[in-house]
Simulated scan of single mutants.
Amino acid sequence: MKIIDLTHTISELMPIYPGTEPPKLKVANTYEKDGFKETLLTMSSHTGTHMDSPAHLFPNGTNLDFFPVEQFIGRALVIDCSDLKEGERITMKYINEVEKTAYRAQFILFHTGWDKRWGTSSYFGEYPYITEEVCEYLICSNKKGVGLDVISVDPISDENLTMHKKLLHKTDMIIMENLTGLEKVGKGLFTLCALPIKYDNCDGAPIRAVAILDG
C-alpha cells in the first residue's frame, strides 16, 4: 500500500484567496515557560487545501459537520488536464477519454499542474476551470465530490461563483480546492481520504487529503 499526501502546508506566508485574511500561527505556550509547546491557529474556514460544503453558498445547504464521515472517503480518479494553457477550460473531452473508469469513481480530481505555481502571484491568474457540462456530469452521475489543484472551480473573475452554485445547489456534493501532488497518483482508481476539521455549522474547512493506492 502506498499513501500520497495531496495537501499543501498551512503557513503564514501561504497563498490565500484575494481579500481573505492570511492565517496566523502564534506560539501560545513554550517549552521554556510552560513545559510544552502549543500554537494558537487563526484562519478562515477555506484556507489552503480545503473543502466547500453546500452551506458555503446556500443558507439551507448541508454543513460539513452534518455529513456522515463516509462522504469524505471513497474511490477516486485523477484526470490529467495538464496540457491546458492559461485561461483554457476543463471540458467533457477529458472525462470522455476515461469514461468507463470515471463512471466507477465516487470522486473526480482534475490535475492541471497549476499547483506548481503555489506561492507565486500567477497562482491567482488564468487557471483552468471546469465547464457547466462537467458540472452537469458530476451531478447526474451522483459523484460525492470534485477536486482540483487550483484555487477555485470558478475563474477568479467570476464573482457570482457560477460553477460553485451549480454544483452545490440541491446536492450534497463537496468541492475540494488547492490540492497538490495529483500527478503522483497515476491513472487508476484509488481510495481518497479527505477529512475536514469538524466544527459547529461548518461551511468549509481545511482538509488533510491523501491518496491510498492499491497494492
Rank of each mutant, 00 (worst) to 15 (best):
S53H: 06
M173V: 10
Q71Y: 08
K187W: 01
T91S: 10
G204E: 08
G215W: 00
R89D: 08
P155H: 04
V150W: 04
Y199W: 02
E21P: 13
K33F: 01
C193H: 03
E132Y: 01
K100E: 15
S44C: 14
Y123K: 02
D80T: 07
R208G: 12
S152A: 13
C135R: 06
G204W: 07
L189N: 07
I95M: 04
N63M: 09
R104E: 14
F190K: 11
F190P: 14
C140N: 15
G145T: 01
E136N: 14
T49L: 04
V153I: 11
I139T: 06
E12M: 10
F124E: 09
Y31R: 15
E21T: 11
F67R: 10
L138T: 01
I139R: 10
S157M: 06
C140S: 15
I3G: 01
W118T: 03
G19H: 04
V150I: 10
C202I: 05
M43F: 09
P18S: 14
K93W: 02
S11V: 00
H8C: 07
K33G: 00
L148T: 14
F190N: 11
G147K: 08
L57G: 03
P155D: 07
G119E: 03
E88R: 07
D149C: 04
A211G: 09
T131G: 03
Y137M: 02
T30W: 12
I130M: 06
F66E: 15
L192S: 04
L179C: 13
V27Y: 03
M51L: 09
S122G: 11
Y123Q: 04
Y123T: 07
Q106G: 13
I156Q: 10
K33M: 02
L84D: 11
I174M: 11
F72H: 12
N60C: 04
T131Y: 03
K187V: 05
R75S: 11
T47W: 10
L148H: 05
K24I: 04
I3P: 03
E126F: 07
N178S: 13
F124D: 12
K26W: 03
T9K: 14
D172L: 06
E97A: 12
A205S: 15
R104H: 11
P68E: 00
P15M: 05
L179R: 11
T101R: 13
W114D: 00
L77Y: 09
P15W: 04
P54V: 02
I175P: 07
K93T: 08
